Simulated scan of single mutants.
Amino acid sequence: MADHLRWGILGAAKFAREFMGPAIHAARRGELVALATSSPEKAAPFAAFAPGLRVHDSYDAFLADPEIDAVYIPLPNHLHVEWTDKALKAGKHVLCEKPMALAAGEIDGLIAARDTAGKLAAEAYMIVHHPQWHKARALLAEGAIGTLRMVDAGFSFFNDDGGNIRNKPETGGGGIRDIGVYIYGCTRFVTGEEPEEIVSARVDWENGVDTFASIAARFPSFDYAGYVSTRLSPYQEVTFHGTDGVMKLTTPFNARVFGEARLEVRRGMEVVTHRWPQADHYVLQVEAFNASALDGDDYPCPLEFSRGTQRMIDMVFAKAG
């Protein structure tokens, strides 16, 4: 049995260069060995931290490389399903950026392709690998804030660059797909519940993409209010309100970039704060993927979980009309 995965990256995206490429290189039991790009200039920064990197000038040649075990896909949203399917059929494990698909039904086909290939395929939903989210789930389960009644979540940043893929409808852009996946998925992860109904959805559109979306939803045992925007000052926070206390994550999604990861539990006048100043959820994500692919360990974010978050996104779009 292999003791490590040989990784390749399908496309020289900025995010892959700055975050996921270094994380793959740093993670235990993994090695970055290949990149697909036709641009030597884009390949150079990857080769700087991954000496000996093989560079393929076509995606098909990259997938045909027998020395690649696992593929990370940072392509624009509308290409995720197509290239995840192709990578699985080429016999590779696949970690694909979120959102995994543009509709929940598309993930059913990827689940079937995963099972047929006998490989691991997953969405790069890195936050569920961060210890703050495991702590939040454990605290809620043990009754640290009593009975949960309300969840509030917000995530925003400002990006009005018309040339950016996040602002292009043809590439699956918009705030809901880019960051709604975080505020919806984290709630499902911590509570283990699925939304019953989107009660209301106000969505602002600009050139065919959503730039602000505020929703109210009903889960089986609690209510939910959340918003995302790509036209507001940077902000992120998630709060769980219970009968006996309040649990708040102040840097829930971009730990160490937006600020220190902290989880605060307030019960009356008492506040207990948990901190994780060094945890790198990108490295933890790759290490969990390596362990699952190599040893068969359970993966914290299987495609079935991603399908549930995409279903909620679909429900929001349907309610907004």
Rank of each mutant, 00 (worst) to 15 (best):
W7G: 03
I9S: 03
G11V: 11
A12L: 07
A16E: 10
R17G: 04
A23W: 03
I24F: 05
A27E: 07
R29T: 02
L32P: 08
A34K: 00
K42G: 05
A44S: 14
A47M: 12
A48Q: 07
A50V: 15
P51V: 15
S58W: 10
A61E: 08
F62V: 08
I68R: 04
A70L: 08
L79Q: 11
W83Y: 13
A90C: 01
C96L: 03
P99A: 04
P99F: 02
A103Q: 03
A104I: 02
G109A: 06
G109H: 04
I111W: 00
I111V: 02
D115M: 05
G118T: 13
K119M: 04
A122D: 05
I127R: 03
P131T: 15
A141S: 07
G146V: 09
T147R: 14
M150F: 13
G154R: 15
N159F: 13
G162C: 06
T171E: 02
G175P: 04
I198R: 01
V199C: 03
V203C: 04
V203Q: 03
D204K: 11
W205Q: 11
V209L: 08
V209A: 08
A217W: 07
T230G: 06
R231Q: 10
Q236D: 08
F240V: 15
D244W: 11
L249S: 02
T251M: 11
F253A: 07
F253V: 09
A261D: 14
R266L: 15
R267W: 10
V271G: 06
W276N: 05
P277V: 14
Q278E: 13
E287V: 04
G296C: 04
D297P: 05
C301G: 02
G308Q: 11
V316G: 12
V316Q: 15
K319T: 12
G321D: 05
